[in-house]
């Protein structure tokens, strides 16, 4: 299980990295390497060139400004997990990160790497979808924004041209008093989830649901916003019955099947986790849970 040969490139700037991407055939970017390295070791990925982003300047960092959280693509998952600013402004992401791999992999793994690897079960992609994130992409022509909804083109395929790379993710923040929850089911702790659910709720002054986000990971090729559930929630007074009804929207969704789990089981998990996530988010929105 040793990687095949490749040429190693070690750019210092985004411009250099993009130029290398434009110039080299069959090149791949190496971010944290926590997903790519196993693929190389198992020889299921055969790049001729690896462009290492670990020494590229300016790709690392967390800022919260004017209601927007911006995280540089090479920011380590561990840094995000430990960021007080994120815990305060976007606690859904903090919660989701505790499910991402393990301490050692979070020390190396990056948010940009997770987004581009685009595993259907990846927690950070699900969170990005739940929060209507925007992906900042650099290319030969400069920078462009891609809405997270448009980012996955298909199974593990991001909407990036061969000469483009992700430089950051921007997340519009929810109001301070929103409720949130990230839940997932995996056979063992730290494994890729079979299904995950992210829920966000904002209550109005009358205690009704003013805004809702319901997102599922692991059911399809990309995270799925369950808009039917969101529609069912908004404007209603939160009750267990309402959450059950909203969660029931998940039972009919099309789910994938793999050796880990059949489709029917994923549908059932989707409904259960959605209900639990909504209940938890509600408890947090009302201050009844931490």
């Amino acid at each position: 299980m040793k990687p095949a040969g490749f040429a190693y490139h070690d750019p210092q700037t985004v411009a250099e990295a993009v130029a290398l991407l434009g110039r080299l055939e069959n090149a791949r970017l190496l971010a944290g390497g926590q997903s790519l390295m196993p693929m190389l070791a198992m020889r299921v990925a055969f790049p001729d060139h690896l462009i290492d982003l670990n020494r590229v300047e300016g790709l690392d960092g967390i800022t919260v400004e004017q209601g927007v959280l911006r995280i540089g693509a090479m920011t380590r998952q561990r840094s995000i997990e430990r960021s007080a600013a994120i815990r305060e402004a976007c606690p859904l992401m903090t919660e989701a990160l505790t499910h991402v791999g393990h301490l050692q992999t979070r020390n190396r793994g990056t948010i940009g790497g997770s987004l581009c690897h685009l595993d259907p079960s990846a927690e950070l992609v699900t969170v990005a979808a739940a929060l209507d994130a925007t992906i900042e992409v650099a290319g030969p022509e400069g920078q462009r924004d891609v809405a997270i909804a448009d980012f996955p083109l298909g199974f593990m395929t991001p909407a990036l041209a061969p000469e483009e790379m992700v430089v950051a993710i921007r997340i519009p923040l929810w109001p301070r008093e929103h409720g949130y929850s990230f839940m997932e089911f995996a056979r063992r702790h730290g494994d890729y989830a079979i299904v995950s659910a992210a829920a966000l709720l904002v209550l109005d002054s009358a205690g009704r649901i003013a805004r809702a986000s319901v997102t599922l990971g692991g059911v399809g090729a990309a995270p799925l916003r369950v808009t039917t559930a969101e529609t069912a929630l908004v404007g209603e007074a939160p009750t267990p019955a309402l959450f059950r009804a909203a969660a029931a929207c998940c039972e009919g969704i099309e789910a994938m099947e793999d050796p880990q789990a059949p489709a029917w089981y994923r549908q059932r998990l989707a409904a259960v986790l959605t209900r639990r996530a909504l209940e938890r988010a509600w408890a947090r929105a009302t201050g009844e849970a931490a």
Binding site: P38, M42, R187, R188, H189, G190, D191, Y192, P259, Q260
Partner: peptide, 22 residues
């Protein structure tokens, strides 16, 4: 195994050994 005899448990991510949490 799948129906053609291809093994499906060929990594530690597919063959689930109990960890400390289990």
């Amino acid at each position: 195994y799948d129906e053609t005899g291809q093994p499906l448990s060929t990594t530690f991510a597919d063959y689930l050994i109990p960890t400390a949490t289990e």
